[in-house]
Design a protein around this nucleic acid. Sequence first.
DNA 1: GCCAGATAGTCTCACCTGCAACTATTCTAA
DNA 2: TTAGAATAGTTGCAGGTGAGACTATCTGGC
Lengths: 185, 185
Amino acid sequence: MAKPSPAASRQQAKPVEDDRNAAVPQDDERLDLFKFAPFRLNRLAAEVSAALAVEYRERYGLDIPEWRVLATLGFRREACSAQYVAACTRTHKSTISRAVTSLLERRLIERVENTEDRREFRLRLTRKGKTLYEELIPRLQQREREIMACLSADERRTFDRLIGKIEASLDLIQTSEEADAKQAY
Amino acid sequence: MAKPSPAASRQQAKPVEDDRNAAVPQDDERLDLFKFAPFRLNRLAAEVSAALAVEYRERYGLDIPEWRVLATLGFRREACSAQYVAACTRTHKSTISRAVTSLLERRLIERVENTEDRREFRLRLTRKGKTLYEELIPRLQQREREIMACLSADERRTFDRLIGKIEASLDLIQTSEEADAKQAY
DNA sequence: GCCAGATAGTCTCACCTGCAACTATTCTAA
DNA sequence: TTAGAATAGTTGCAGGTGAGACTATCTGGC
């Protein structure tokens, strides 16, 4: 895995004669992926997710959709529908449906028929699910703290605020209540 | 798509009698997904990606790996290997391989044998690829500007700096040269 | 009451992607 | 020199995921 030195393989990157220099984009037309916010956000999110996945996947055998269902149900005091979870987490309803099926089989959640609307079911954590939730959450919060430890308290607040502004401009902000109104997930 | 009012569907979320209140997590043990940085980053990245995808997918029929290959080759002055692109973009080498195949078929990139190391190929944009690149990049940059327009210039700089700190702490920072040394992609 | 349209949830299908095996080639060290 | 390890790139396979069809149910207008 470890390579003797970056230089060893860097030889491959040395310039190759290019007879088309005329068509090479000018500096101001080029785009440095490393400075491109969408790319950086993607990469950062993927890396942070991977760091957390160690906890919920390797330790508890959960995948991301399953963990999102648990997180939503664990946070809310009341039982709620799969549709609600999908809207909250911005995850496709078919993905949530599969996660719910899996969690039901593992007896981590249970569902009760909604007599007022028999199309939907109310989901909630079982005792077993709550135990897992209470065990898992502190681990994830610890991971988050470790990852964000590179920022000062002040920077962290600023970061949250700026993320919030971008979310807002993308219409990503939803309260628990508003999430109920979201469709398409 | 539009629903009469959030309240219309919110009825579903009203509390259900729960005979297990004793096991409900306490406030400080719960985790609000909406305030959890990893979740927010994921959601934000997905949303930003979706906003950009309109440009490269619908307009040019490119998927994310293909666009990343183009972006890497377009930014660099010299031809470089698939391995290099994979390391740069943190994308799995098999994914890059498929993107390269597709781009070769579309004559957007070309590859030349590396006589110094015949295991690898040097990739570079064709004239057609450069034309597409120069057409696409301004559109993507415009999208990025639109998305980030909610931040002031000062906030934008701060945001970049904070993202940079997190990237650094996750060892995500690489210069073009360092990327050559990365394995596993 | 009844029908058209909307909604919750499930399922199939197609696609995408990572893993790991594989080939070809290069490097390393005896 | 040469065998074994490492590397670049490709491909088969399996698992995950979104789109959209489908069923059951609900809502609103007539």
